[in-house]
Design a protein around this nucleic acid. Sequence first.
DNA 1: GAACGATATGGCACTGTGTGCCAAGTAGCC
DNA 2: GGCTACTTGGCACACAGTGCCATATCGTTC
Lengths: 219, 219
Amino acid sequence: MRDTVGAATGLRERKKERTREALADAAQELFLRKGYDATTIDEIVAAVEVSRRTFFRYFAGKEEVALARAMEFEQLFLSALATRPADEAPLTALRRAGAEVLSEFGDEPDGGTGHEFLRMRRLIEGTPVLMAASLRNAIELERRMAAEIARREGVDPERDRRPALSVTLYHSVMRVAMDEWAEDEVMDTAGLSRIVEAAWDDMATMLNDRWTAGELGRD
Amino acid sequence: MRDTVGAATGLRERKKERTREALADAAQELFLRKGYDATTIDEIVAAVEVSRRTFFRYFAGKEEVALARAMEFEQLFLSALATRPADEAPLTALRRAGAEVLSEFGDEPDGGTGHEFLRMRRLIEGTPVLMAASLRNAIELERRMAAEIARREGVDPERDRRPALSVTLYHSVMRVAMDEWAEDEVMDTAGLSRIVEAAWDDMATMLNDRWTAGELGRD
DNA sequence: GAACGATATGGCACTGTGTGCCAAGTAGCC
DNA sequence: GGCTACTTGGCACACAGTGCCATATCGTTC
């Protein structure tokens, strides 16, 4: 994603993009090595040789730079959703868009972007202020996803709650599945796919107020 | 909830509780009148005549005092869930516990705790840092609720994802329903109940990959 | 290549949040 | 009343975040 910039823009734009990338990379490296709270903005900007003031021209704050990479995946997801076949049911479109993004990773037991992704995820989960900011980003992403589902289905999201419900259901299942999967230390995308499918099966069973598949309702 | 304290404790404990309540009340009054960002900790402690240092002995930070009342409702909810009949299905128990807590409010068009609750909810929704902190609290509440569901169902929440799924499903439906309901300015609990029921119906339809009740699946 | 306008950067001073330390004050107990 | 345990207030500090302005750099035109 980052290597597609600058092909047809000026030096000024290219320098800005390089500064932004350098800040995001330096921040991530420091956060993963020292922890979020123990890393200061002064340390990040020193690593890139720009001023604090410049930092705040690229990022609204310390949290935003920490979540910068995760937000790139959100863009990937929205693009994937927008290009799903128009006649696909909403939940199917969401699930398949998610699978597309996941396939961007390879199985990379101890290297590459997948490993870094897992390490950043653990950092975020373990840092309350980042977890909070990440959740708020997720809410905003849900709103945009719901708008896309509403567009695909030709309904008004302000009047019809089904887009919002489908998106929040999708995120709920994904979050429970990813919490379960991330207990391992390995970027095993096939394993995640299996957990996700099983979680959807459990959810369908549960929504009919049953606890196991095959059980009759009992209230 | 707050008036049950101090009956059998010493003066020191009673003074601490009064200070804590005074800070929470002063903070809420200032946040609702001036906004969260425009209110400083110095203003809150000046209103109660204690020091900044004392403030930080009662609350971990500015966000925590803003969410103090909301977290009291979380305790109410957990208590209500714990006392639901043991043989109730998980989703039914969650829904009925929620209805119990909601009934603590009356329909109070322009006064009382219900009105204050709505105003605080709008403040939180409109303040990114509070929204983020609130969402993180909700995650922690979900974890405790899942533990309670797991206890009721006699399963290990570390091995069985159904407690987590049922809780996150419940929260998802409630959040979509409350977003829809809170567009009004009135504490209409009957209206909320109707929206919640309708949202559950839509969710059940959707989880079977249908968009309307009665529609055959089409993928 | 120089000039000029537009834009980016760095430095500074400032506000506000949050925290550790320690002296002074207060509550509880005997 | 004395002593102990606990609470409070003041202070100095670190850090995040921001507005303002002088200086530097890039892009465009000639």
